[in-house]
């Protein structure tokens, strides 16, 4: 019996929403299902399917968001919003794309929106989406929040104190997202482009420049 105790259809699980698994006789092991099938089950109102998607992606999504905003409590709120938004919009999800890319896109957009709103109170986070040398020299950095940690002393906040995490936090948001998706999440360039909704060439530029800056920042710290 599966942990959820839900029945599973006999035979192979179909890949599309229209032919999503129905109630059958075998126990359903969600962990073995493809994302699209789990989404199809969620669309049928199976709460366990929602929980399976959460268990698969709560860490990756939270990791990305917390490294973007550098505040664990805020990151949890944003990640939570991302999941709720995605779940309520499951009807608009196109199964021909990867669910994870779609989810990351929602989370990234929410995070970038938050950073933009936050920067309105301080200083613009954008020089331009296609930065040149002059902009790089004068561009402002995202401020790293100091203190403010809640009584729940997160492991995340401790992790964010390491040298490389601090260096990542000093990158401009586009570079940060691209580098994190590529190297921490192991996404392909095409997936990163899809998530960030920018052309492939722009993603390559972001990643190369982000890595160059990151390496320079780490060298500065080491020196």
């Amino acid at each position: 019996m599966s942990p959820s105790g839900e029945p599973v259809p006999t035979g192979v699980v179909p890949p599309t929403f229209a032919a999503a698994p129905d109630a059958g006789v075998l126990p359903l092991d969600y962990a073995t299902l493809d994302d699209r099938d789990v989404v199809a089950l969620a669309c049928k109102g199976r709460e366990t399917a929602f929980r399976e998607l959460l268990s698969r992606y709560e860490r990756p999504v939270f990791s990305l968001v917390v490294r973007m905003v550098r505040d664990a409590t805020l990151a949890e709120d944003l990640a939570q919003e991302a999941f709720i938004k995605a779940f309520h919009a499951l009807g608009s999800y196109d199964p021909s794309y990867k669910f994870s890319s779609w989810l990351f896109k929602i989370a990234n957009n929410l995070t970038i929106d938050h950073l933009r709103k936050k920067q309105l109170d301080t200083v613009s986070i954008h020089g331009s989406s296609s930065p040149g040398r002059g902009e790089e020299d004068s561009r402002p950095r995202i401020a790293v929040p100091d203190g403010g940690e809640t009584p729940e002393d997160y492991t995340a906040n401790r992790e964010l104190g390491s040298q490389i995490e601090n260096a990542i936090g000093r990158l401009r948001p586009e570079y940060r997202t691209a580098v994190l998706l590529r190297h921490v999440e192991g996404r392909s360039y095409e997936e990163v482009a899809e998530i960030m909704e920018v052309p492939l060439g722009t993603v390559k530029t972001y990643i190369h420049r982000g890595r160059n800056e990151l390496k320079d920042l780490l060298a500065e710290v080491a020196a």
Binding site: F50, F62, A75, H183, V184
Partner: peptide, 18 residues
């Protein structure tokens, strides 16, 4: 950079979303 750990939210994260 590739050795960076995946960070986890609090244990009740899924319950709060659901």
């Amino acid at each position: 950079i590739e050795a960076l750990p995946t960070l986890a939210p609090r244990n009740d994260f899924a319950d709060r979303v659901m």
